[in-house]
Design a binder for these strands. Sequence first.
DNA 1: CGGAATCCTGCTAGATACTG
DNA 2: CAGTATCTAGCAGGATTCCG
Lengths: 138, 138
Amino acid sequence: MIPTHTSDTARQQAHDPMECRALSDILVRIGDKWTILVVGTLGDGAMRFNEIKRSINGISQRMLTLTLRGLVRDGLATRKQYPTIPPKVEYTLTARGLSLLPPIVALTDWARQHLLEIKASRALFDLEAESNPTTEAP
Amino acid sequence: MIPTHTSDTARQQAHDPMECRALSDILVRIGDKWTILVVGTLGDGAMRFNEIKRSINGISQRMLTLTLRGLVRDGLATRKQYPTIPPKVEYTLTARGLSLLPPIVALTDWARQHLLEIKASRALFDLEAESNPTTEAP
DNA sequence: CGGAATCCTGCTAGATACTG
DNA sequence: CAGTATCTAGCAGGATTCCG
């Protein structure tokens, strides 16, 4: 419906209100704090629950459970359960999950490259804001 | 410190605990629901506050204010205020902000390409989960 | 017009404890 | 080991109001 501009250059493509909804829905999940780290970790190959947990450092077991379930739900990872004692569960990225790695790497590379600049900008901004609390000082 | 592995392939690069902190700090901001949309919108050129607000549809004035301030703070956008009546404020992406567009486009392209598959996966997952509420039904 | 300030809410995510 | 369940604090974010 309303096929105004279907695809122009990179600049014009992400503005259709309906599509934006769905897209940001996905992007929110991906951009979430833990998802990126988990996907990056699973990029190394199949891993067990506590293995992932240990290598991420700071993630709670709850958040890891939810993050992994989200990945499985989106078809980005698979969960393989071995009915042994003690139980053993392995998570692996699917092909779709693997296809997500390059964009993620591009983004993290960008972040890495601009890390220092951004830190500096923030420090400067905060400094200036401190001197100007709406033009006044008690 | 601890320069264990500085950079190997794409697979091995995002795991240093210290760096991860800083990186995910940035990624969280970028991955935030509105930031991507605002950056994408500003990619078209300088825009006024309400202009952005109107073109994003669903964003509250508060969230737009905060998002824009975040972008300015990170040096990704500039705020230019014209002391006219009524006031006029224009936001523009900086060079650094522009450099963020390609990775973002890569990610949104990925999201767009896998939108339907993911929706299907979710539907299937939710359906199966509904039939198995911890192996029981009243 | 472009915000800032205030209030109020609901989800998020951490900590803890229990199960198969 | 790999979860689930429960409780709770905190803050994200919407609605509203006022100011320059």
